[in-house]
C-alpha cells in the first residue's frame, strides 16, 4: 500500500524548519511559502540569494535554507544589484514591504526597474508600516486610519496612495510586473503562477520582475484574520486592481 501513497503536501525543502514570528492571519507566511515552493520546484536552492528588508520580514532570512543578506531600509534593490553583477548566474530576489520599497526605497526600486537587470522583487503591500506599529504607508488608502493618520488619510494632509505596479510598468526596463492578492486559495494559486513567471524572467535572463502582493495586517488593522481578508477584497482591490501590467516576450 505504502508505495501507492502519493505526497500531496509537504514542507518545502528550502524552508527552514522554524516557527515564524508573524502575527496570526498575516499573509507574510503565505508569501514566504510560495517563495520556498518555487525555489524547490525550480531547483534554485543552491544558487539563490535572498535580500531581506527592514520591516516585518526583517528576519525572513531565518526561515529559508538558502543564502541571504539583510539590507538597509529600502536599499534591497541596490544590494541585490551588487550581488547579481558579481555572480550573474545566481538567482537573486528582494523581499520588501511597502514602506521599505515605496517610501524610503523608491529611488532604488525605480532605478533597479529602469536598469532592467534580471533580479526579482516580491513586494508586500499591506497598506501600513506593520513592524513599527501601523503608521501610514505610501500605500495607505484614502480614509484609512493609521497611528499617524488618526482621522483617516486625506489627500490634503497626506497626499495620495502610490500604485507601484502600474508606475513601474511604465518603464522600459522591466520584463514582468504583476499585482496579486493573498486573500483566498484561488488568488494564492494565481499569485504563485505570477511569481513563477517573475522567477522565470530572471532565470531565463530576460529582465527585472516584480510581483506586488496585496497582503493583510490584522494586528494593526485591528480586524480578525477573516475580516482582514474581506477588507482586502472590498476596500484594497478596488484601488489596487489585480493583474499583469507588463509581460515582455519570452516570460512564461
Amino acid at each position: 500500500m505504502a508505495e501507492q501513497m502519493k505526497v500531496i503536501y509537504e514542507r518545502p525543502t528550502s524552508w527552514a524548519n522554524k516557527v515564524t514570528h508573524y502575527c496570526p492571519g498575516c499573509t507574510h507566511g503565505v508569501a514566504h511559502r510560495l517563495v520556498a515552493e518555487l525555489v524547490d520546484e525550480m531547483g534554485l536552492v543552491d544558487k539563490t540569494i535572498g535580500v531581506w528588508p527592514v520591516g516585518c520580514a526583517v528576519l525572513g532570512y531565518d526561515y529559508f535554507n538558502f543564502d541571504s543578506v539583510e539590507a538597509a531600509h529600502g536599499r534591497a534593490p541596490a544590494m541585490a544589484t551588487g550581488i547579481k553583477v558579481t555572480n550573474p548566474d545566481n538567482f537573486v530576489f528582494t523581499y520588501q514591504g511597502d514602506g521599505d520599497l515605496a517610501s524610503i526605497g523608491m529611488a532604488e526600486i525605480v532605478h533597479a526597474a529602469a536598469r532592467g537587470w534580471p533580479i526579482t522583487v516580491i513586494f508586500i503591500n499591506n497598506g501600513n508600516y506593520g513592524m513599527t506599529g501601523g503608521q501610514m504607508a505610501p500605500t495607505t488608502l484614502l480614509g484609512q486610519k493609521t497611528t499617524t493618520s488618526p482621522l483617516g488619510r486625506t489627500p490634503q494632509a497626506n497626499g495620495f496612495p502610490i500604485r507601484v505596479a502600474e508606475m513601474l510598468a511604465q518603464l522600459d526596463g522591466p520584463a514582468y510586473i504583476a499585482r496579486v492578492s493573498l486573500d483566498s486559495p484561488v488568488n494564492i494559486r494565481k499569485a504563485k503562477s505570477a511569481m513563477r513567471k517573475a522567477f522565470n524572467a530572471q532565470v531565463r535572463g530576460i529582465g527585472f520582475s516584480l510581483v506586488e502582493c496585496l497582503s493583510t495586517c490584522p494586528t494593526n488593522w485591528k480586524l480578525t484574520p477573516v475580516e482582514s481578508m474581506e477588507r482586502v477584497r472590498k476596500e484594497v482591490m478596488p484601488y489596487f486592481p489585480l493583474g499583469e501590467f507588463k509581460v515582455v516576450e519570452g516570460v512564461l
Binding site: 535580500v51 543578506v69 539590507a71 538597509a72 536599499r75 541596490a78 544590494m79 544589484t81 551588487g82 532604488e108
Partner: peptide, 12 residues
C-alpha cells in the same frame, strides 16, 4: 546611497 549598498551586496 545606492552606490554603497551595491558595494555592500558585492562585498557579501
Amino acid at each position: 546611497v545606492a552606490s554603497i549598498n551595491m558595494v555592500y551586496g558585492a562585498a557579501c
